[in-house]
Amino acid sequence: MTAFFQNLGMSFEWAWFVSTVCGILLIALPLMLAVAMIIYVDRKIWAAMALRRGPNVVGPFGLLQSFADGLKVFLQETIVPSAANKGLFLIAPIVTFTLALLSWAVIPFNSGAILANINIGLLYILAISSLGVYGTIMAGWASNSKYPFFSAMRASAQMISYEVSIGFILICVVLWAGTFNMNDIVWAQKGHVFGIINGFVANPLLFPMWVMFLISSLAETQRAPFDLAEAESELVAGYQTEYSSMAFAAYWLGEYANVLLMCALNATLFWGGWLPPLDIPVLYLVPGFVWFLLKVFFFFFVFSWIKATVPRYRYDQLMRLGWKVFLPVSLLFVVIVSGYLMATGHFA
């Protein structure tokens, strides 16, 4: 895209600047639309599994429900509690929302269709997701209210715990792919098993890692069954209890953008990203981003399915799963995978 703007007569730096801004808009605006639609999809799936109808009033099949909700929230009054720490209270949702968008810079949508094709793509995602704690913890503390604070404590402890095992899981993927670059990780999955299946997931050593990554990504995004941070029977509405209007909407959008990001990561790291599922020439006629979006949507369906069917975890069970089960098992698999790769001369 930089070359295109350079052809229009701009200097390289301006062309780079304009093309980067265009790239950001090209990702962020469809993402916001996708988030609005995916909230509708989430509610519809959830309703279908509970034998209800779900949103069906606004627009055809209720398709415009999210936009109606958005308008309602937009017109609401912004209420800042008098005892709140005003600056932090208003910054916190902005932090959450921005961080939810930042990680998308390194997600490959198609071969080469990636905003920042950097060598350390996966590390960048880890870094940004480790910052996600701050939006929550700042909201909880700045609200100056009991339940949001409890919730912020729970959420941040939960996110830190599961990031540890996610790190080890990703190391297994990186070892096998031999790179941190997201695009190259996708390429490394081409014909990975028997030369025909695209995706690390079919590899017997990496399949357990994918299962753990899926569960960890549920915990990381605080989706059911790990939605303890907003357990409505215990904590009113969690860290966003005191929020209203656009600040509340920013949390809502950020949360779903994070869920979509985790779906995209599942697709990219284990299911071959924009590659078709099988390495057959006919399947490459379908554009890569169609495969990518199909995979992301599939994982979102799995997320909704889990939300509709699985009861909430107890907090001690959640911590036990993270520290006593996932951490040792993922550590063991780092040893097994690297041992296997050394034994078979993968790095030779």
Partner: peptide, 22 residues
């Protein structure tokens, strides 16, 4: 030094500073 930069964020900002804040 992009690797060191990322490690600084992951280790100090993402883990150590959270404990400070706690």
């Amino acid at each position: 030094a992009e690797f060191i930069a990322m490690l600084l964020i992951i280790v100090y900002v993402g883990a150590v500073a959270v404990l400070f804040l706690f």
